[in-house]
Each structure stands twice: as C-alpha cells, then as structure tokens.
Simulated scan of single mutants.
Amino acid sequence: MKQGDIIIYGCVIIGAGVGLTLDNSFPGVLIGLGAGYLLKTFFRKEE
C-alpha cells in the first residue's frame, strides 16, 4: 500500500468518526475523502 493511499484512508476514517458524532456519517466521509486527496497532493514527493 502506498503512503498516499494511507493518508486518504486515514482522513476518510477520521471524517466518518466526526460525521458519526454529528449523526451524519456520509457527509463526513466525503469531506474526509476530499481532505485526504488535498493532503496527498500537498505531501507528494517531487520526482
């Protein structure tokens, strides 16, 4: 598994957890997914 994938999965799980505390898990997952992709591109190594 690549490091970028781990960042995305972690953000999705955190987003789902925050969404469950607010009684809406699906929007939390989507926000976590978007944040994961942003973090993945931010921390991507220059080749």
Rank of each mutant, 00 (worst) to 15 (best):
F43R: 10
L20K: 06
R44A: 13
A16E: 04
P27Y: 02
G17Y: 02
P27E: 06
C11K: 04
L22S: 15
I13E: 01
I14T: 05
E47K: 15
D5V: 11
D23A: 11
P27M: 05
L22F: 13
G4E: 01
K2T: 09
K40S: 10
I31T: 06
G32E: 04
L39V: 09
M1G: 12
F43L: 15
G19H: 02
V29Y: 02
N24M: 13
V12Y: 05
L38T: 13
G17D: 04
Q3W: 10
L33G: 06
A35I: 08
K2P: 08
I7Y: 01
I6S: 07
Y37D: 13
K40H: 08
C11F: 07
K45L: 10
F43V: 12
V18H: 06
G17T: 05
G19L: 00
I14D: 04
T41P: 05
K45S: 11
R44E: 13
N24Q: 12
E47S: 15
V29R: 00
K45G: 08
G19W: 03
L22C: 14
G36M: 03
L20F: 08
G15N: 05
R44G: 07
G17F: 00
A35E: 05
L33Y: 03
T21I: 12
I8S: 07
G15C: 04
G4Q: 01
F42M: 15
I7E: 04
G34F: 10
S25Q: 11
V29L: 07
K2S: 08
F42A: 12
G19C: 00
F42V: 11
G36F: 00
Y9P: 01
I8F: 01
G10I: 05
M1P: 08
K40Q: 12
L20M: 09
F43D: 09
L20R: 10
V12A: 03
G34T: 15
G36T: 04
V18C: 09
L30F: 08
T41W: 15
L38E: 07
G10C: 03
V29S: 09
Q3G: 10
